[in-house]
Design a protein around this nucleic acid. Structure first.
Lengths: 145, 145
DNA sequence: GTAGCACTTCAAGTGAACTCGAGGTCAAGG
DNA sequence: CCTTGACCTCGAGTTCACTTGAAGTGCTAC
């Protein structure tokens, strides 16, 4: 029947045992059965925990994730189910992708130019052909001191 | 000469005045000149603050951002300049884009299926043709009480 | 039967990133 | 001169997401 201890879940997911207990206490994962007081997890919890991890890394709060994971009772009309939430979350994720892509381009541009700081790369049109030496236009912002 | 008060910067960037002061105290933006004790910002600070904001939303810590923004002295050899950091950050951003794109697909899939929770969408192959009613496969995880 | 280990609970602590409040300053307007 | 409003500093408080620590439990091995 392949149940797991919290230690095994921790190893499989890369999260600490205390983090997993915390997620349980916060209602992000279902309260597992206990055997002799100890949690016995089914294999599906590994997926749940991984989902939580990815969503966290994407900037979702645990509050958000709880709602996304728990969905709604099936007694509630379809438009209120998690699709509804997905619909609300999608623009956020799209936004994030947009911003991340912009940052990616900026970083890639940074690899090809002579700018000393990120601001320079943003504020000056430092495309490859220009080839200014950094000295020609540094330290305009800081002023004295 | 178009200098700005902190209130104007706050309005233009959408960040609170206290957050802007905090960024200054943390060395993320240059210490602005004071006129009668009050900060007078040049227009470039708006870009800086916006960059900080985007980077924060992408999950960079202030520590990371400080380094990205401040770059290094031009006395330091080219490989140590911000390009170096860009090079280290790029995989992180690419990773983020990958994960965000996966999440986007999941959310989009969620809009087209009958799953009640996000887990269901991940754990079951709930592609449109399958058309299970949710009842056929809910509550497998929780077990008793 | 006792040592060891992985687990348990619960409360308190931590670090990051701000936010808030108190008390004070500065320039303009009535 | 006095008020008003936007700003100032500094220290303490808050929120989130955990982590840590203390004290205890249950099973296995010797």
């Amino acid at each position: 029947m392949a149940t797991m201890t919290i230690g095994q879940v921790s190893t499989l997911t890369g999260l600490s045992q205390s983090a997993i207990r915390y997620y349980e206490s916060e209602g992000l994962i279902a309260t597992p059965a206990r055997r002799g007081g100890k949690r016995t997890f089914g294999p599906e919890v590994v997926d749940s925990v991984r989902v939580i991890r990815v969503a966290r890394e994407l900037g979702f709060s645990l509050e958000d994730i709880r709602t996304l994971l728990n969905g709604f009772s099936i007694d509630i009309a379809p438009p209120e189910r998690w699709q509804h939430l997905a619909h609300r979350k999608l623009p956020e994720v799209n936004d994030l992708i947009q911003r991340a892509t912009a940052m990616k381009r900026l970083l890639e541009k940074g690899l090809r130019c002579d700018c000393v700081t990120m601001q320079d790369c943003i504020l000056y049109d430092c495309n490859p052909p220009v080839k200014l030496t950094p000295r020609q236009r540094t330290a305009p912002a800081t002023g004295g001191a």
